[in-house]
């Protein structure tokens, strides 16, 4: 089962929930945690783990073979992203604008634009006990998160098809990187906080996730601050609230130090177990 942990708003507790759930599950069985926030991956800060594998992430871009080119300009005309242009006597490729559609390369009558692989970042896999942790991080200046997210999910699925639970720590927001993260999840856990910001971004995230007709559950973090509008929204939308994590300076301090909170606060262990039980019940109950 693939569980995506997402939120809309940043800083609501996605990484806290992902890392703590993963560590808790790992106490009794193998589990995979994939950090898909490839722009700012920081789940790994919460584990001391051995690196077991590393590979370069790449994207396909055209390479101009001057010797074959007749400067016909077809490549520039077929590119919808303005990623390749004719500039006087040369063809210039803008790799950051390229979407790797291959149109320029394959429609070039002279085969003067072979595809090459350009580095965009690195995928790393770590292990500690039962926990297999996979992250991809974009090189600074690389803009496209989606291909790295897709690649990381694929890597996890191929290598750990036998593991019962895979957790995806999602990037914030509601646009393409989040869509790519939740696309093939079996369950989406949305973490929010009980404030107008939390509610606003939660409702956007719900609309996004519902495009894929996913089963959703909400966790209200920092419960006790703010107001009841999030709970009211969930009632209205018939979205189950799986847990309320109390607002606590102690939790904020443990998180700030890179510590797993359930190990220090027994109440959190119970809350996390409750979340896992609820997800099992919902997904096995035909949801």
């Amino acid at each position: 089962m693939k569980i995506a942990i997402a939120s809309g708003k940043g800083g609501t507790g996605k990484t806290t929930l992902s890392t703590n759930l993963a560590a808790l599950i790992a106490e009794s069985e193998e589990v995979v945690l994939a950090d898909l926030d490839v722009e700012e991956p920081n789940s790994g800060l919460f584990f001391k783990a051995e690196t077991v594998h590393e590979e370069i992430n790449v994207k396909a871009i055209p390479y101009w073979d001057e010797s074959k080119c007749t400067l016909c300009g077809i490549c520039a005309r077929v590119c919808n992203f303005h990623a390749i242009i004719r500039l006087g006597p040369s063809i210039v490729v803008f790799p950051e604008l390229c979407h790797s559609c291959y149109a320029c390369s394959e429609l070039c009558p002279e085969a003067a634009l072979p595809i090459i692989q350009k580095r965009t970042g690195i995928l790393s896999e770590f292990q500690t006990g039962n926990l297999h942790f996979i992250e991809s991080r974009l090189d600074i200046g690389e803009e496209q998160a989606v291909p790295a997210i897709a690649k990381t999910k694929k890597f996890a699925a191929q290598k750990y098809s036998g593991v019962r639970i895979t957790l995806f720590d999602s990037p914030p927001g509601t646009s393409c990187p989040v869509m790519e993260t939740v696309r093939d999840a079996d369950f989406v856990l949305l973490v929010t906080e009980p404030t107008p910001f939390g509610l606003h971004d939660l409702s956007l995230a719900v609309d996004t996730v519902r495009v894929f007709e996913k089963t959703i559950g909400v966790v209200i973090n920092r419960y006790g601050t703010g107001n009841d509008d999030v709970a009211e929204y969930c009632r209205r939308e018939q979205i189950p609230v799986l847990a309320r994590i109390p607002d606590s300076r102690r939790i904020a301090e443990l998180y700030s130090a890179g510590k797993l909170i359930y190990k220090e606060i027994p109440e959190i262990r119970n809350i996390l177990e409750g979340i896992l039980d609820a997800i099992t019940e919902i997904t096995e109950g035909g949801g």
Partner: peptide, 10 residues
């Protein structure tokens, strides 16, 4: 701005 280091931030 938005969080991250990707296209909206750039």
């Amino acid at each position: 701005g938005s969080p991250g280091v990707g296209c909206p931030v750039v």
